[in-house]
Amino acid sequence: MPNTDHDFHHDDFEFAHEEGEKLIDRTYSATSYAKDVWNNFKKNRGALIGIVIIVFIVLMAIIGPSMNDFTYKQIHGGQECLVPRVPGLEKLGIFDGYHNGKDQYAEQDAKDVYYWFGSDTQGRDIWTRVWSGTRVSLIIALAAVVIDIVIGMVYGLVSGFFGGMVDSVMQRFAEILNGIPTLVIVTLLGMVLPAGIVSIIFALMLTGWIGMERIARAQVLKVKEQEFVLSSRTLGAGKFRIIFSEILPNIMGQVIVTSMFSIPNAIFLEAYLSFLGLGVPAPMASLGSLVSDGYKSMTTFPHILLIPVIVMAVLMLCFNLFADGLRDAFDPKMLNK
């Protein structure tokens, strides 16, 4: 029957799906942005593993140094460079204090002593030093990330968004600061500031944020001409509103990933600073200074280097898994999927 009255009938269209399949409209309860982020983050297994290990390492940094009778600066003459020995495990043939087929502990007359991670070239317990060093390095890492994000990102955002004269002046300033080698700047700081964590953070603050600033600016330049910014602008949003609630969430992923990469840089910068007299004052340790000390014994007693490097690498791996999870969770484009 020809349909001539141009009216729609209920059977004009039918579902292209197979017979019997039901289509149910789901309704979702409105969730907040934070909750969305959390839900997304939870789904990422790697990120969860990462955060569990980070929590574990943080716990060890807090309680590790007090788990045995040694202190980080206690020197044991005659018990230098011992390899790890752990009660229990030694029966399995690992961590039994043997180096090149000789029982070092028996040779050094230290039969009842257990250095779980071995001892360093001055006879100090590496276990205690590694965990107290991790504590220092975690604080530095945290500071590095905060400085990166607070100073670097905001600077980059403002510079990139406003463009023109503002951008030009801000970029020249950053160029001058970055055009002077970091070493020259921090050497001078060494004279003015006393050694300690505050000074390290200050040194990071002077120079550490510039890398992030450039990345944030590049991201803004990329994003700011896009349609959603334009639409926000036409709707009459203020400049700061556009920066912080439109552009910021869109570049957050890149920012987080970059800031994670600034962590090892900060930790190693600290090791260099202690050489200039600016880092954590000896005999206090940090992961960076443990690595650079251990380097000297790398070909003879590799365990002195290996242990801090492993802690460092695991920590970094977990920070990155965590950052990846955060990045995916924060990304508005991923949220919509």
Binding site: F261, P264, N265, F268, V291, S292, Y295, M298, L305, V309, M312, A313, L315, M316, L317, N320, D324
Partner: peptide, 15 residues
């Protein structure tokens, strides 16, 4: 690839 790059930055160049 991620693991390689993470190790790349967390192991210092002199090592």
């Amino acid at each position: 690839c991620s693991a390689i790059s993470v190790f790349g930055v967390s192991i210092p160049s002199y090592v």
